[in-house]
Design a binder for these strands. Sequence first.
RNA 1: GGUCCGUUGGAGAAGCGGCUUAACUCAUUGCCCUCUCAAGGCAACACCCAUGGGUUCGAAUCCCAUACGGAUCACCA
Length: 552
Amino acid sequence: MKNKLDLAELIFGDIKESVADLEKRFSEREISKDSYVTRFAPSPTGFLHTGSLFTAFIGYKLAHDSDGVFYFRLEDTDTKREVEGSAKELLEQLQLFGITPDEGLTVNGEVGQYGPYTQSKRENIYKIVIKEMIAKGIAYPCFCSKEELETLRNEQEKNKEITGYYGKYATCRNLSADVAYNRIVAGEPYVIRFKSTGDHNNKILVHDEIRGDLELAQNDQDIIILKSDNLPTYHFAHAVDDHFMHTTLVTRGEEWLSSLPIHVELFDALGFSRVKYAHLPVIMKLDNGNKRKLSKRKDDEAAVSYFLKDGYPIEAILTYLMSIANSNFEEYLIENPHESYKSFTFNLNKMSLDGALFDIEKLRYFSKEFLAKLNKNEITKRMLTYTNKFDQEFYLRIKENEQFFKDIINIEREKENPRKDYACLGEIYEGIKFFYNDVFGELVSSVEFNPKIKKETLIAFLNDVKVNLSFDHDEQEWFASLKAIAVKYGFNPNNKEYKLNPEAYTGNIADAAEIVRIAVTTRKQTPNLFAILNILGTKEVNRRIDLVISKI
RNA sequence: GGUCCGUUGGAGAAGCGGCUUAACUCAUUGCCCUCUCAAGGCAACACCCAUGGGUUCGAAUCCCAUACGGAUCACCA
């Protein structure tokens, strides 16, 4: 007759260490009690998700605001869904946002004493724990096939019972060690399950740092802890890793709330002291009038690369995320205009309980504010990095004459209330392309002037502008000279007078300015005309006017 | 369907039993400024806090029910 010890030895014969050895190996962190140890633990299944960035950001803030540790752990136990190279990509994108792990996997390799930080490399640790669990009888091998499980589920559904492997349905939990031993020797495939002692009708009291005290039904499912591929499932790995890595606060999406009872039972059964949890609300999106989680497959904005590609500054993205996380953050910003999310202390209690709708308009607002505050050198530098990656043609154009670009981007910039034209770097080209002579040449063929003004007047006016418009000195003088010319062609420089009898004039001063504006930019709306004329210079302005006249 | 979580304006939200004629921010609309646009300034925008019942001298705030929304029920995390 074989007993539980024999069974444990049969399955994990190569495992010699004990849980006590592990406790010794991964001893308590020397860290203040008030400091949080948090982590970001993604699976390598693709690029960085906006929701993941949010979670990582919160974890990072919490740890750093409390002089704690923020570490990165790779949860790569689902070999089927794994995407090659995504761990690296995740890390790099995180770094772009300034969210660099203090410990665990980093762009420079693994750091820290609680590793390995990649779950597939921790097989041994999991097995040490499971071996003891089998020996103690709180875990057991299960030989049920997927087909059998499927049949069981159908049966349960038909009878309107709770589905799953629990209680009387967990047939393998009653197998004697001897029987199990022999079936394994005979070569039957199996998984390892946790033997739950919970009762679905009883409640457990748990505390969530965001939601407060929660009363949840106990877990009674004999969940799988070791899959047939010898890798642990999430629930078990979470308990083992967060215990031995000494996490103090688990920050994760609220989709995990319903499996909390499993985790709590696991921690208790293993004799681990429970960690704290903060289940973060999920970022949602409105789809046909219904709220739903941002979806990787359906929504472009679910991937942070979407914002990067358009050139939203990472500072603006993080500011936006912080504004959803703690709404008093915006008040903080108003009171402290020179501060940012970096100096703001994030508070879990101020977090909303339900998922916020992703609001691109608000992101755009923060982004405009941010970009407007940059000086010409800073924005040029960013623009160079951005276009080098996403718009080579424009990159080369800027490079060719950096000063020219700086002059353009500096129009109405370095001052108290700068222009807020751009929500992202990707919008800049469209805004200023007419400055470039070759582009102007293409645009000019489709210029249209106010049809109310006669062609002859237009041409005569423009010719006059060519010789008499003065913009070498200051803005006042420029405007005065524009007025002087305009008057000759029947424009009224006094708007109040003009409004009294519009029929008597060719137009008002705005109409006159519009002609010049269209002639040199092909647009009806632009930033300050005086500045534009100066940047282009007399020669180019006159060349453009000639070109335009030839098209009228 | 079971279980859990939630519900204050178009969006993020403050509020936690009387100080609320419901803060603040974005969006929207109007006016002012003005060579256009952007910016800036000033206003407006929840006949009331999902609905219905309670508790209370008094409720957005406490309790119950209903409705609605979300999450979750895998050898995925």
